[in-house]
Amino acid sequence: MTLIGEVFFWVLGATAVLSGAAVFWVNSMARATYALAISFVAVGLQLLLLDQAYLGVITILMMVMEMAVMAVYMIMFMGMNPALMPMSMVHDKRLSLVTALVTFALLAAGILLTPWPSGRPAPTEDVTVALGMALMEPKMLAMIVLSPVMVATIVAGVSLSLHRGRYDRYGDDLERAAADDPQPGGVGR
């Protein structure tokens, strides 16, 4: 990495940490959510600097979409619904502080105790493939099994929590020709 690259990298790191902290300083749900989005975007750009082009861009893509949807959830469905209003983002300070410090200590200890490879090996041809292999190779089967299980869990969770299932829409014997919806959809099923 060039000198400018290194400077950028550290600036982005600081941005990620500071905007992550800003989540708790600001006083509105929208600002907190988008502070978190900025933090993720900074991390995505750091990945770009590490030549992980695909991972970097996909991080930005996923996180921005996720935060955009999360902002709406935070504002619409906050327990007591003052989320359209300015509000404090810190709850239960003492316990949160302890949890945060313990988590930080654990993660920092993990970083320090990991046996990192020594020296600077020459970068491989395709870093994305190399990273994927390093992370996944021994566990590929587990990962392949996991993804359909996760999708099935999501589908099951959604169908269990549905407010109006097909019996509400089509009647107890599913005998209605057209579904009874508050607003009909575009396909007309």
Binding site: A37, A53, V57, M67, A68, V69
Partner: peptide, 20 residues
């Protein structure tokens, strides 16, 4: 090298921007 995903990421930004 990931220009296609770059374009896609930029249109995901529009989600956030219009809402903001």
């Amino acid at each position: 090298e990931a220009g296609l995903v770059w374009f896609n990421a930029m249109d995901a930004l529009v989600w956030a921007l219009v809402w903001l």
